[in-house]
Design a binder for these strands. Structure first.
Length: 593
RNA sequence: GGGGUCGUGGUGUAGCCUGGUAAACACGCCGGCCUGUCAAGCCGGAGAUCGCCAGUUCAAAUCUGGUCGGCCCCGCCA
């Protein structure tokens, strides 16, 4: 046996016990006559003392260096009262070494293997195994593991079957860009890695599995962000014989279960539900963080005759809205306003009108143009939001641009001035999404907001022909702390309706047959009403672990350019591999662009 | 595809605007001293042609252009 105890578990009651420990050497403190080392494993740290009486042992211990992997046999003893370390869980005791085995030596690591670290992220990614050796990182993966276990535990208790879906699937050109995998047996043909198991889980419903889930890896070849990786994990769920409320109810309880089991947080159920329209109007986003204590106010109806031409013009074809940001007017410099203005322009606005509220009322910025009448109405509109030291940011444009700018400012400023209470969580469902959204690139000018199998809201079906953009979807997103952590829908199970949706999207029967024929054919053999939801598992874990980047909860993540700095993927392959696949590289094509 | 930002011993930074001396500091590393430290302490030492390429110049870490890479954002992500 190489160890009898772990490093973190020894306490005063172990005094007198002989133990075998194994782990990494974390610190070495050399006093010439006595040598202390701190031995560390996943469970904690403990001090091991080497005394000079046994010269052979002492001399061997003397050669130890940081991150060497060793085994120690020794006796647990109480430390002298004045040498107790209250900051250490095992600080009351130490292990006096009697035998030492050096399992392996370590080179000097490129950065210290400890929580407080200054190394830049590319260095950490290159030596990911050392990064993962740090206790803070290990904590993230403990959270991840517990979240996965809580998911399985809950869904198992709800009668779900965990079934795996294939990773080599048929490419479907809709949605995100596929990662392709060439076929050797069928030269010139390709598998794709799944963007999600969507179609397969629907087929499980046709198969009568009734309730399915899996922790499925998904792959999307799109550009990355702090919360987006090319491969990520979903908690994928599908249920038969359900309506929207059934899925939402299940998802609420699942989310609450995970949060309680992983971080002990009690989520109040049922969660609030908010329509997409309301979310966009009040928060400028379909994933609002309701912990931010200020929101967007529409003032389109009062700007007529306000004295500021830009508002009056914008109100004719668009909207005028204001974001009052309290308590920061004294902290926002002229330069900062300029930065915000530039940002607003990047986000599509023509500019950013501002003003502030001081002890004397409206002040600065565009307030000088306003009529007294408007000031009065505006003041009334602001209600209890009218108090000094507030910055007012205005958007006057088409609704989507105003939402984007003011919604973006809201989250950005809340983050920058640290006005979010991070001990709380904000969870809600956003519902009544539009079924379609405008899309200039597509044939009919519309594209599905979710995916083409989403059921329209029953009452809106008659609108499909006359005003498709007004049709609401039977779809829902779960938003946690401003992140979309799950999304789902009730699916279409009636072939006629499905055909109609395809037609609206400009997908011909022929095309539909070619792309999704296997699904449509399956639906001819008895398909139950069904629907489901899929969680972005990594994002959920990121939030529960209190991290800002999804990379911190993925063991071996890619950089924002999609490279793995540790193993060097993607890489070139042998000519022989390509020959076998019937593939020729034509790099000139990509160079030309 | 676009915008921003960063790149200097093993690690993190300073120096760069205003070109010119041994490129400075902290941590780490190596050696010495030290029998109760806990991020031990003290003394000494090694280690960087400043991401890469080209240009300007008598002279480039410093100025210019390009390029590579990290991070953040927009587009994109049914």
């Amino acid at each position: 046996m190489l160890r009898t105890h772990t490093c973190g578990e020894l306490r005063r009651e172990h005094a007198g016990v002989q133990v075998r420990l194994a782990g990494w050497l974390q610190h070495r403190r050399d006093f010439g006559g006595v040598l202390f080392i701190v031995l560390r494993d996943r469970y904690g740290e403990v001090q091991v003392t080497f005394r000079p009486e046994n010269k052979e042992l002492f001399d061997l211990a003397y050669t130890l260096r940081g991150q060497d992997v060793i085994g120690v046999f020794g006796t647990v003893v109480m430390r002298p009262p004045d040498a107790i370390n209250p900051r250490m869980a095992t600080g009351e005791i130490e292990v006096v070494a009697e035998e030492l085995k050096i399992f392996s030596r370590s080179d000097v690591p490129p950065f210290p293997v400890e929580d407080e670290i200054t190394a830049m992220e590319d260095t950490r990614l290159k030596y990911r195994y050392l990064d993962l050796r740090r206790p803070v990182m290990q904590k993230n993966f403990i959270v991840r593991h517990r979240a996965a276990m809580a998911t399985r535990e809950f869904l198992n208790g709800e009668n779900f079957l965990e079934i795996e879906t294939p990773y080599l699937v048929r490419s479907t050109p809709e949605g995100a860009r596929d990662f392709l995998v060439p076929s050797r047996n069928f030269s010139g043909k390709f598998y794709a890695l799944p963007q999600s198991p969507q179609l397969y889980k629907q087929l499980f419903m046709v198969a009568g599995m009734d309730r399915y889930f899996s922790l499925a890896r998904c792959f999307r070849d799109e550009d990355l962000r702090a919360d987006r990786q090319p491969e990520f994990t979903q908690i994928d769920i599908e249920m038969s014989f359900v309506e929207q409320d059934d899925v939402i109810d299940l998802a609420e309880r699942l989310t609450a279960h995970i949060m309680f089991k992983v971080v002990g947080y009690s989520l109040k159920l049922p969660l609030p539900r908010m329509s997409y329209d309301e979310a966009m109007r009040r928060f400028g986003t379909d994933k609002p963080d309701t912990r931010i204590p200020f929101e967007i106010i529409d003032i389109t109806d009062i700007v007529d005759g306000c004295g500021f031409g830009v508002f009056e013009n914008a109100a004719k074809n668009g909207v005028v809205r204001v974001l009052p940001v309290p308590d920061i007017a004294d902290k926002v410099s002229r330069k900062k306003i300029d930065q915000l203005t530039k940002l607003a322009q990047e986000w599509g606005a023509k500019g950013l009108a501002t003003a502030k509220i001081s002890e004397n009322g409206f002040e600065g910025g565009i307030s000088k143009f306003w009529t007294d009448d408007f000031k009065e109405k505006f003041c009334e509109k602001l209600g209890d939001k009218f108090f000094p030291n507030t910055i007012l940011l205005f958007g006057a444009d088409k609704p989507d641009i105003v939402s984007k700018v003011l919604g973006g400012m809201r989250t950005m400023l809340a983050d920058e001035f640290d006005i979010i209470n991070r001990s709380e969580h904000s969870a809600l469902f956003v519902v009544d999404f539009p079924l379609f959204e405008p899309d200039e690139d597509s044939e009919r000018g519309i594209t599905p907001s979710h995916h083409p199998f989403t059921m329209p809201v029953e009452d809106d079906i008659p609108l499909l022909d006359e005003n498709p953009l007004a049709v609401r979807a039977n779809a829902y997103d779960l938003v946690l702390d401003g992140y979309e952590i799950a999304g789902g829908s009730i699916r279409i199970h009636k072939p006629e309706l499905q055909r109609k949706i395809f037609n609206l999207l400009g997908i011909s029967d022929d095309e539909a047959q070619k792309k999704f024929g296997f699904l449509l054919e399956a639906f001819r053999y008895g398909v139950p009403p069904h629907g489901g939801i899929a969680y972005g598992f990594d994002r959920l874990v990121m939030i529960l672990a209190g991290r800002k980047s999804i990379r911190d909860v993925i063991a071996f993540p890619k950089t924002t350019a999609g490279q793995s700095l540790m193993d060097g993927a993607p890489s070139e392959v042998d000519a022989e591999q390509l020959r076998e696949l019937g593939i020729k590289i034509d790099i000139q094509n990509t160079d030309d662009k």
